[in-house]
Computed example of a mutant assay.
Amino acid sequence: MPLYTTANPTAWLQPAAVDGARNQATFWIPPSGTTDANTGLPPFWKNENEFWTSNDAHHTDVFGYAYPGTQYWNFTSDEEWRNSVRGIIQSLYPNSARSTLTNAVANGDTLTHIMDEGNMFMDWVIQVKASAREMPPIFRAMFSLVGDFSSDASTEVGMWMRMIVDGPETSAWKAREAEQNAKRFSTIDQGLTNTIGLTSSLLDQIKAGKLESLDPEAVVPYLNTHLTWVVYAVR
């Protein structure tokens, strides 16, 4: 939601009548009224007299934290910030490769040769595995395709995030558990795994003339040269 509202600043909560099919009355909100972005959000108290509202919580930094990508103070303008967020959204939720290719066939564009006679194509994914013992509880791994030269801009193709925050009441217990399981984990590592779709990004490279096809003979050497990743961790 923070990413969506950042990329779409004019799309916000509109007034809605209570008692409607999609906006029923509740214990806190009586019937025959109207809810909007200034309506209180019980049971989340802002102070002893009022609740937080959607407008109050439009940016999460009022609570003392911000998600990666929504830290607007790192950008020189709102437009630069929103363009960055749109790039993150595209890497997290890229267009379907099949819909892209189906449209290509219908329009006769440069991707027509990718689909075979049975409307099949090679689908590429990144299968990632990391050590649960060695990775911190909070990390962000960014996967990108870099250019041929250091001055070329890189293209983000996917992101893997993991956020597990331990409360102070559980830290001592976890320390004891880790000590007890040290020997077992030394031989059996509880690995972390994730899968990131790559085909849509490869299609963009084909359209840009940087890759010939989705065939392994073309893709594997290309990935060996251009696929890179970096892990941002909080310990």
Rank of each mutant, 00 (worst) to 15 (best):
M122C: 13
M122L: 10
M120R: 08
F121W: 09
E117C: 06
E134V: 08
M159R: 12
D166M: 02
V125C: 06
A141P: 13
K129T: 15
A130V: 03
A130P: 01
L145Y: 02
S151H: 07
L145A: 03
D166F: 09
F139Y: 15
F139K: 07
M122S: 14
A153F: 08
H113Q: 03
S131P: 13
W160P: 05
I138D: 04
K129M: 10
S150I: 12
K129A: 03
F121I: 02
M135Q: 14
D148K: 07
E134T: 11
M142V: 13
V146L: 01
G158Q: 05
G147H: 15
V128I: 13
V157R: 00
D109V: 01
G158N: 06
H113E: 04
G147A: 10
F121L: 06
D148M: 00
D109L: 00
M135F: 10
G108Q: 05
S151A: 11
F143T: 05
T112A: 05
E156F: 02
T112M: 03
S154Q: 07
A132T: 07
E134H: 13
S144R: 08
M115S: 04
M159N: 04
P137N: 13
I114T: 02
M122N: 15
M120H: 10
D116H: 02
V146M: 06
V165F: 08
H113F: 09
T112E: 06
G118W: 01
V146N: 08
